[in-house]
Write a protein that binds this DNA or RNA. Sequence first.
DNA 1: CGATTTTTGGCAAACGTTTGCTATAAAGCA
DNA 2: TGCTTTATAGCAAACGTTTGCCAAAAATCG
Lengths: 356, 356
Amino acid sequence: MSKNKDVPGEEQSGPLMADVARLAGVAISTVSRALANPGRVNEKTRAKIDAAAKQLGYTPNAMARGLRVGKSNIIMIILPGSLHYGASQIIPQVLQSINKSLIQGGHNLMIANLDRDETSERHILDLAFGGTVRGAIILSSKLPEVDGRSLANAGLPIVSMLLDMSDAGLPSVVTNDREAVREVTAELIRLGHRRFLYIAGPEGNYHDVERYGGVIEALDQAGLPAEAVSRSGGNLDYQHGFEIGIQAAGDFARLTEKPTAVIATSDDMAISFVSCVQRTGLSIPSDLSVVSFDGSPVCEFCSPPLSTIEQPVEEMGQAAVALLLDAIGRTEKELTTRTVIRSKLILRESMAAPKS
Amino acid sequence: MSKNKDVPGEEQSGPLMADVARLAGVAISTVSRALANPGRVNEKTRAKIDAAAKQLGYTPNAMARGLRVGKSNIIMIILPGSLHYGASQIIPQVLQSINKSLIQGGHNLMIANLDRDETSERHILDLAFGGTVRGAIILSSKLPEVDGRSLANAGLPIVSMLLDMSDAGLPSVVTNDREAVREVTAELIRLGHRRFLYIAGPEGNYHDVERYGGVIEALDQAGLPAEAVSRSGGNLDYQHGFEIGIQAAGDFARLTEKPTAVIATSDDMAISFVSCVQRTGLSIPSDLSVVSFDGSPVCEFCSPPLSTIEQPVEEMGQAAVALLLDAIGRTEKELTTRTVIRSKLILRESMAAPKS
DNA sequence: CGATTTTTGGCAAACGTTTGCTATAAAGCA
DNA sequence: TGCTTTATAGCAAACGTTTGCCAAAAATCG
C-alpha cells in the first residue's frame, strides 16, 4: 500500500492509486475516475487529486488496468524475416512511421519478427491469444499458424501493409506497384528501348507478380511481345537484393541479345547489378539504362545516380495505423478495404535513350 | 468462465485456466503449477492437464500473470531520433539482433523511440513506471526525464549500447571506436598520407570524441602535429550523414592545402562525400583515399568500393541483452560494466598510397 | 500395522486497477 | 419547509493469474 514495503529487499513498486487517494482524502474509485473520465468528478476534487498524483509521481499500472478492462494498448508488427536489407530503408521507415502514428493515439509498438521457424510463430500467437496485444500490422503474406491456433482466429484486428491481402480478408495498404512499373516501362519504351531485363524478387510473391505484370502490360500496350523482356532472379528473397543483382549481372553477360534497359524490383538489386556491370566496361546509361523500386536515399549518390520508384512508406504507415485503430474502435466486423497510395518515380541519370 | 460468454456481443475472451481445470478435472491452482513449475505436480496429472490445455487451445493471459507476479517480460529499446539513416543498417541490425536474443529468453521487444519532444519522454516514463516494461536498452546519451520522474529512478535495469555510459552508472556495450580509428589512421600514415580530413558527427558526441581522439593519437604516435587534420561537420546528427558528406565536400573544395586522405565517421558521410568529390573530377583513391565507419554492406558496391570499419552490431546486441537479462535475474544492485567488442576494418579500394 | 515423512492437490488471498450500484449531499421546485 | 431530481463520492466486485498455506493421500520406516 505504501510507497516502500516494509520488507527492505522488496521490489520497488511505486505509489499506488490508493496512496493518491489517501493523500487527496478521497476514495480510490474517485481517483480512478478523476484521472480517466472527463466529467464524472467535481472540478475541485479533480484538482486536489491531480495535485496529489503529481506530488507522488504516480503512474497507473498498465497491467492492472489492462487486466481489468480486458484490452492492452500494444500493437505488434509482424515482419517478414530480416529487418535489414542491403541499403534499403523501407522497413526502418515503416517502423518509424507506424510507431509515430501509434504513439499519437496512446498505443505502443511491439516487434514480432516472423522468422520461418515454429518458435517465432508460437511466440506471435502467444502474444495474440495471451491478450498482450490489441492489434497487428503484418508485412508478410503468411499468417502465423501452429497447432490449431491461427492468428486469423485470435479475434484481433489485423491490417496488411505493402502486400495486398484483401483476398484473405485483411484490410490492406499498398502502393500501385503494377501501375508504377507500367509507367516507367512505358517511359523506357518511349525513350527507344526495345529489349529489357527484369530482375525479380521471389517468384510468385505479390510484388513480383504485380511489378512483372506492369512490365508486360506496358509492352503489350506498345505492341511489343512478352519476349522482349528477359527475367533474372526469382529464387531469393528481397533481403538478398545484392546477391540477386550480382546474379543478374551474370545472367546479363550470358544473354546473346543484350537488353538496353534493366528494371530491377529493388534498389539493392540495381546497386549491385550496376556495380558488377560497370566493372565489365559497360557504361550507364549510355550502354544500359537502369531503374529500380524502393526509393532508397542512397540512389542519389550512386554513379550514375539511379532512377527509382519511391514507395510512399510514410503515408502507408499512417494509413495502416489509421485503419487498424479504426477497426479497434468499432465493434462490428471490420470491412475489408484496399487502400492504394501512389508511389513516385524519381528520374535520375541512370535512364536515357539507348545508344544506336 | 466458459469459452463464449452468454452475451453474444461480448469480446471473444478465449478459454481460461478454469476451463482447462474443469476439463482435466483438477483445481485451477494445479493447472497453474502444471504449466509453469517443473516438479511440483504428478506426471500423470500434468499429462492430463497438458492434453486439456492443448485441446482447448489455451493461452495464459499475460497481463493477469504480469499483474500477479509484478513483472512483465517486455524490454524496451530507446532509440535516438530517427530509425532510418541514409544507407546504414546499424539500427535495424541492432533491433534484429536484440529482438532475436530477447525472444530466446522469452522476452519481447517494444520500441520506444526517443524523439526530442516531451510527449515521447513522458511516454517512455509511463512505460517504465507503469510496469509495462521490465528493462531497457538505450542507444541515446540522454536518459528520459520529465517533471520529477527520471528513467534512472524507475528501478529498471538499463543497459546502454553503442555509447559508453558507464560514467552515468549504466552497464555499456560499445565497440573500440578510438582504437579502430587510431589503427586505420596509422595505416593511412604508413601508406604515406600526411594531411587528413576528418568528417565529424555531432560535436561532443561520444562517438565523435572517441573517433577524433583516435585520429589524434595516431598522428601523435607518428610524430605528426594535430594540425595535420582538418575537421568538417559537427553540427548535424548522424542521421543526416548524406548532408554532412555534401557539406564536407564543400569544405574540402575550400581547403588550400588539400588533404590526401579522408576519415568519415559514418558510411553515409563517405558515400555522399565521394559522390560529390568525384563530380569535381577527383579520382579515388588516386587523388584521395577514403575510409569510414559502420560497415554498411552497400560500401562494397560503391565505385570504388569503400573501406569501412565494421561495427560488430550482432555481437553487441547479444551482449547487451545478456547483460540486461543478467541484471534482471539478480536482485543485487547491478554492477556497472563496460563491455568492448572489437570492430573490424574492411579494406577495399578506396584506400591507397597518395599520388606523389 | 501405526507413526512419520513426503508428495500432491485445493482453497483462498493477493496483484492494482475499473465500474455497476448505492448512498449521500446539493440543488430545484412547489 | 418538504419533496423530487441531479450531481458527486464510496463500496465492493470483478479481471485471470500465482502462490502461501493447509489437508489429504501416498510412501517410507520402525
